[in-house]
Simulated scan of single mutants.
Amino acid sequence: MIDTLKMYIEYSILGVLALMSFLTLWFALERYFYLSNISLNDFPKKGALENSLTNNLTIISTIASNAPYVGLFGTVCGIMITFYKMSASSNFETNVVMMGLALALKATAVGILVAIFATMVYNGLARKVEVLMTKWEDIYAN
């Protein structure tokens, strides 16, 4: 039963991280193409432009800040299951324990990778928004 629970937790955590990565890529592409094709002349008011430019950036930022926690949750669950298996086993085998711990740490590694990717995407898009806002201010400053 513990092995089944570990499998479900592992696949669930990795599935959530894969979904987070997919959403980051999806919104990044959407924002990239939108920001590349926007006409600044269509926005006479700064607030409307800023709202339009920053749409969906919060999702990417949220993924970037929470992906490590999702990975850490998977690691904690994996370590708890490994310790439970150790206590329930009559013979102690260090290779089984080390394998369980190594697999548990995989979730943290994947969570960190997703967070790095999302942070890089967010920073790149935020910079593009800043450049577009500056261009808009140059157009309407006169």
Rank of each mutant, 00 (worst) to 15 (best):
113 L>D: 00
114 V>W: 10
7 M>Y: 14
108 T>M: 05
49 L>D: 01
40 L>P: 03
51 N>T: 09
9 I>N: 05
32 Y>F: 15
53 L>T: 00
79 I>V: 15
130 E>M: 03
91 N>L: 09
107 A>G: 01
53 L>E: 02
82 T>K: 08
128 K>G: 02
124 G>A: 07
125 L>K: 05
13 I>F: 06
103 L>C: 06
116 I>A: 09
125 L>I: 10
92 F>D: 03
74 G>S: 00
82 T>W: 07
33 F>W: 15
30 E>A: 06
106 K>R: 13
88 A>M: 11
53 L>V: 02
45 K>F: 14
103 L>G: 05
22 F>T: 07
34 Y>T: 07
131 V>C: 08
108 T>W: 04
26 W>N: 10
31 R>I: 01
25 L>D: 01
131 V>Y: 14
34 Y>R: 11
98 M>S: 14
31 R>T: 02
111 G>A: 01
42 D>F: 11
44 P>H: 10
14 L>T: 09
59 I>D: 04
106 K>D: 05
27 F>Y: 15
79 I>F: 10
23 L>N: 07
127 R>F: 10
37 N>K: 15
124 G>Q: 12
22 F>L: 14
63 I>G: 01
115 A>E: 03
125 L>S: 04
118 A>Y: 03
106 K>A: 07
97 V>N: 08
74 G>Q: 01
93 E>P: 00
116 I>F: 13
85 K>V: 04
29 L>M: 14
